[in-house]
């Protein structure tokens, strides 16, 4: 059963020296073959495609399920011969995991590329057909292209021995352009997009937090308490007043008043109201995810396989 572990690793097909022509040929060959396989699959008739996807999904799911549930061999070495079928499967699951991990990284990377290709196709069509908002599509394509070109050129300029330091000391046009595009524009626009949420939250809170019923009063009261507890100055001041009212020492009054400290109220809300309700939601979600995963794994989910 220990199939993958028995492969002679030093002379592997994929172990060509880094930067060698052979490795580049292998990479390009794998790339072309991969895309050919994808196109080939997309042209398969539906009645053939469905079982193929179903089998691949089932095997993938089975592997990870076994990895979680199968007894794990403890303190074994790579040259150890398994004793029996159970240990054999266990060894195989352990040894094959890095290969599966690499396969998953490549597959996920490919999905990223597929997303980019799809995005480009949609927006190129919009530009070609002069869609009403084609200028935005053109902006997206130009920005994407510029970032990719200068990103790759910047990376390539620092690839050789000692080049990184040279580029850091004397940046060229390519490095300046990349810094301008990424550090100057992209990251700041990213921050702008996220910070806009604050304005929407502010406006929504003003319109929705109204004392219309007892339930809304409870919600508003709790929200205000939590917001106050986020303001350190208020928390410190509130607690000082409570301590002052309760008096010093460990008497019954002081003990009772300590319950009114803002931190204590916040902790009570957090421990007894917030956490249990979120936990309940999470459990519900997890059960739903489990059910959906089972449907996907067993090929019952029509949206994917049908």
């Amino acid at each position: 059963m220990n199939l993958l572990a028995q492969l002679p690793t030093p002379t592997n097909f994929w172990m060509s020296p880094n930067g060698s022509t052979l490795l580049w040929i292998e990479i390009i060959g794998a790339f072309v073959l991969g895309f050919a396989a994808i196109f080939g699959l997309s042209y398969l008739p539906k009645n053939l495609r469905k079982p193929l996807i179903g089998i691949a999904t089932f095997l993938g799911g089975l592997y990870f399920m076994l990895h979680y549930l199968w007894p794990t061999a403890q303190d074994y070495s790579k040259d150890q011969v398994p004793k029996g079928a159970v240990e054999g499967v266990s060894f195989w699951l352990q040894y094959s995991l890095p290969t599966v991990m690499n396969f998953n990284q490549v597959l996920s990377g490919l999905l990223l590329g597929l997303g980019i290709a799809s995005l480009l196709r949609i927006h190129a069509e919009r530009v070609a057909k002069r869609h009403p908002d084609w200028m935005y599509s053109l902006t997206l394509i130009v920005c994407m292209g510029l970032m990719a070109i200068f990103g790759l050129l910047d990376w390539a300029s620092a690839i050789g021995p000692g080049q990184a330091k040279q580029v850091a000391d004397h940046p060229g046009f390519v490095n300046f352009a990349y810094n301008f595009l990424f550090g100057g524009l992209f990251v700041n626009l990213d921050a702008v997009m996220y910070s806009m949420i604050a304005f929407f939250i502010y406006s929504a809170a003003y319109r929705s937090f109204r004392l219309r019923s007892i339930e809304s009063a409870v919600l508003l009261g709790t929200a205000v308490l939590i917001m106050l507890s986020l303001m350190g100055g208020v928390m410190v001041g509130w607690d000082k007043v409570v301590d002052m009212l309760g008096g010093s020492g460990h008497g019954a009054v002081a003990e009772f008043m300590s319950n009114l400290r803002l931190g204590a109220i916040k902790d009570w809300v957090q421990n007894n109201m917030q956490s249990p309700s979120i936990r309940a939601i999470e459990f519900g979600l997890a059960v739903g995810v489990l059910a959906m995963s089972l449907r996907l794994w067993l090929g019952i989910e029509k949206g994917i396989n049908g």
Partner: peptide, 8 residues
């Protein structure tokens, strides 16, 4: 790209 498998 796939953090879950890497962590596993």
């Amino acid at each position: 790209p796939d953090g879950a498998t890497m962590l596993q």
